[in-house]
């Protein structure tokens, strides 16, 4: 696959926000990530796909600085502002917290800033509502609003549509697109929704403990490593995408995805 590594080298250095270089991470005795290379440039949308336990969240947590790699490096551009939307945020029922107060963490914000951020993600009027009383979709929007309060250069979202129904997640992706158009922030996200990933990403990274393959959505979708991981027929959305876009058929039975995913 000559195109696979096309985006790795040779970009203008001022454009680069994050460089992950041969990073390996152990979680306990488990090798969660080995020799991962990844770069994120200004304004692009990079999506990470991969099966459960493939190290997607671990990779994101290394980039925000929550985990230290055992070897290799994570380089963030000096002064890089990151907006982060975690996969799960459970607020203890004993903590009284309105959406507006949540947006004021950890930096105090004015009422106007809060209203603007809420409006930007289509969550007007939720400011005075307790976080515990928000619906799944409202909650995710408020998380997104908080992530953009800082006017981040890079927005990192870890499966932002977890727990949302189809229309709800479609809405949220529209909002994320909107945020990128408004702010020009780069977006790094983990997603399960492959049809969305394939239509909206500039680049896709297919991860399974290591980078199986990466590149433009078209390149990744046709890579054998990717098919080995996702071509088992259980992902209707992808089948739909394939059907619409490249008319290839895929075989069933690649259960041992890890073994067939060999490119580094």
């Amino acid at each position: 696959m000559p195109g696979l590594h096309a985006n790795k080298r040779g970009r203008c250095p001022g454009m680069r926000l994050v460089t992950v270089d041969r990073m390996s991470v152990k979680r306990g005795s488990h090798q969660a990530l080995s020799n991962v290379d990844l770069t994120i440039d200004k304004g692009e949308i990079v999506t990470i796909v991969g099966p459960n336990g493939s190290g997607k969240s671990t990779l994101l947590r290394c980039i925000i600085g929550a985990l230290k790699p055992d070897s290799g490096t994570v380089l963030r551009e000096a002064g890089l502002r990151i907006g982060y939307v975690p996969q799960r945020l459970s607020i203890d029922a004993t903590m009284p917290l309105t959406a507006a107060r949540f947006l004021s963490l950890p930096t105090k914000r004015s009422k106007r800033e809060i209203q603007e951020a809420l409006a930007q993600v289509g969550a007007e009027g939720l400011g005075n509502r307790p976080m515990a009383g928000l619906s799944g979709g409202q909650f995710q929007r408020v998380l997104l609003a908080r992530a953009i309060m800082d006017k981040p250069d890079l927005l990192i979202l870890d499966e932002p549509t977890t727990g949302l129904d189809q229309p709800g997640s479609a809405d949220l992706y529209t909002q994320i697109e909107q945020v990128r158009r408004d702010t020009g922030a780069a977006i790094l996200m983990v997603s399960h929704e492959l049809h969305v990933v394939m239509s909206a990403s500039d680049r896709v990274v297919c991860l399974n403990g290591h980078v199986c393959c990466h590149g433009t959505p078209e390149i990744v979708a046709s890579a054998p490593e990717y098919r080995a991981l996702f071509g088992t027929g259980t992902h209707g959305a992808l089948a739909l995408y394939r059907h619409e876009h490249d008319h290839h058929h895929h075989e069933h039975g690649h259960d041992h995805a890890h073994d067939t995913c060999g490119s580094h």
Partner: peptide, 13 residues
């Protein structure tokens, strides 16, 4: 407060 809500949220800030 931020670290009580979520450790990763704190790290990102």
């Amino acid at each position: 407060l931020t670290s009580t809500l979520n450790r990763d949220l704190a790290y990102a800030n």
